[in-house]
């Protein structure tokens, strides 16, 4: 077996520890930034929903500002965002390189996308349910958690899946500017040195991660749909 693997991907076999380390870095970048993206995305998605015209806490000013800022950040290409956010990253985490340096741009690049996912998931909640909860004397905060968020779990699970997979794609790009991870490994060790088997190996690892996330996402969505 080792002989066979050595014959088809000699360069990868020499750098197996590096491949493992890069994988761990990618997962670190993904899940550390995800913790923030999830919290902010839910907050902004809920705010967009309730401050909208006819919403629970209608507030045109908040809605318009949030809506425009989200559009702005979604319009900027991620590679530009990476560079523009170097000073911000230095100010917040003290460095703009490595895994830590990638976290801030990943958050700024993904929160707007996830906020829209949350907004569209909440938009699927039947306004009749909100009305019924109001008629029962449920508070506004109660309606947000017990009706909007609870009732849209299947749709939220789909939004989380899409966002996480998107996020992994972005970590690879962050890798290209010195953040480490599989993207960096593929670019520096594979592409620049003409070692194609390294590039292919990172693709295989990413496919496995993406597939796992999709399977878990589908499962959660299915289990929570009644």
């Amino acid at each position: 077996m080792p002989e066979f693997l050595n014959s088809i991907m000699p360069n990868v076999m020499k750098k197996l520890p590096d491949l493992w380390e890069s994988t761990v870095e990618t997962l670190e970048m993904t899940f550390i930034s995800w913790a923030f993206i999830f919290v902010f995305g839910i907050i902004f998605g809920v705010l967009l929903t309730v401050t909208k015209k006819g919403g629970l806490l209608q507030n045109t000013a908040v809605y318009q500002i949030l809506d425009k800022v989200i559009n702005l950040f979604r319009a900027v290409p991620f590679i530009i965002l990476l560079i523009c956010l170097i000073p911000v990253s230095r100010a917040i985490v003290g460095t703009s390189i490595g895994v830590a340096g990638a976290i801030v741009p990943l958050i700024f690049g993904t929160v707007p996308f996830f906020s829209r996912q949350v907004e569209s998931a909440l938009a699927e909640v039947d306004p009749g349910l909100v009305e019924a909860a109001e008629a029962m004397g449920c508070s506004r905060i109660g309606i947000i958690f017990r009706v909007y968020l609870k009732e849209s779990i299947p749709a939220l699970a789909r939004g989380v899946t899409i966002t996480l997979i998107n996020l992994i794609g972005l970590t690879a790009m962050a890798g290209a500017v010195g953040a480490g991870g599989l993207g960096n490994f593929a670019y520096v060790q594979g592409s620049q040195r003409n070692m194609n088997d390294i590039i292919y190996s990172t693709v295989v690892v990413l496919v496995v991660i993406v597939t796992l996330i999709q399977i878990i996402g589908n499962l959660v969505s299915k289990k929570s749909t009644h």
């Binding site: 009749g128 019924a132 609870k150 009732e151």
Partner: peptide, 14 residues
């Protein structure tokens, strides 16, 4: 004051 509706408005996740 209880209220019921034309489309019932039950929570599908519960």
């Amino acid at each position: 004051i209880g209220m019921i509706f034309q489309h019932f408005n039950l929570m599908a996740s519960r």
